[in-house]
């Protein structure tokens, strides 16, 4: 299964980065085709531009700066998102990756006369989300749970109709013992191997 790992965290010493290392190492060891988009290393600009808004039904050919991202997204069968949960959702850089890369003729099409967009990412059959959050599950729900809703509903309908989603979440992370965090990291090695 072609696996695309998208990583988003500014701090190399963070738990998210440690989790990303585990995922990448495990997929490499399994021998499955792997691509990695490290949004911070690439210094990905998450701000949808004036041009992109004016041409929001434009074509990927007009976005040479996003070509690497678009090509990887269309190549992937398994999409793995590795990021912290901030304000109950995706960090700005990752949100902007959706805003800019999941564009017309890549993630969706709007057929003439249609009132709803139709998904185009039928290549994606599985999404894994690896995330840590400072709050508990219940606090995150109280704050809106925006990240989970976006993946499970808004993005999933653009993918293959049988696309499965698995969340690998560690909650309340500041109050966890180091043994619990280590066990979570070990579970990633197992699940992505």
């Amino acid at each position: 299964m072609n696996t695309l790992v998208v990583i988003c965290h500014p701090n190399p010493a963070s738990l998210t980065r440690a989790a990303a290392d585990r995922v990448v190492t495990a997929v490499e060891a399994s021998g499955r085709p792997l691509r990695v988009l490290d949004l911070d290393e690439l210094d990905f600009d998450p701000r949808l531009t004036d041009f992109e808004v004016r041409h929001h039904l434009g074509d990927p050919a007009d976005r040479p700066d996003l070509a690497e991202h678009i090509e990887a997204l269309q190549w992937a069968q398994r999409l793995v998102l590795v990021h912290p949960t901030w304000f109950s959702g995706h960090p700005a850089r990752l949100k902007g990756w959706f805003d800019r890369v999941w564009m017309n003729n890549v993630a969706f099409v709007l057929p003439p006369g249609a009132s709803r967009i139709r998904g185009r990412l039928h290549n994606i059959r599985r999404i894994d989300v690896v995330t840590s959050m400072g709050s508990t599950r219940w606090v995150n729900i109280a704050q809106g749970d925006g990240g989970r809703l976006r993946v499970n509903r808004t993005l999933r309908v653009l993918c293959h109709r049988t696309c499965r989603i698995k969340w690998h979440t560690v909650t309340d992370v500041d109050n966890r013992s180091s043994a619990e965090v280590a066990a979570w990291l070990d579970s990633l090695t197992e699940q992505f191997g």
Binding site: P46, R47, L48, F87, G89, H90, P91, A92, R93, K95, G96, F98, D99, W102, G146, L149, R150, R153, T154, L155
Partner: peptide, 11 residues
């Protein structure tokens, strides 16, 4: 956009 705030506002 995509059920949420534009990235610039989320950030």
């Amino acid at each position: 956009w995509w059920s949420g705030l534009p990235a610039i506002l989320k950030g």
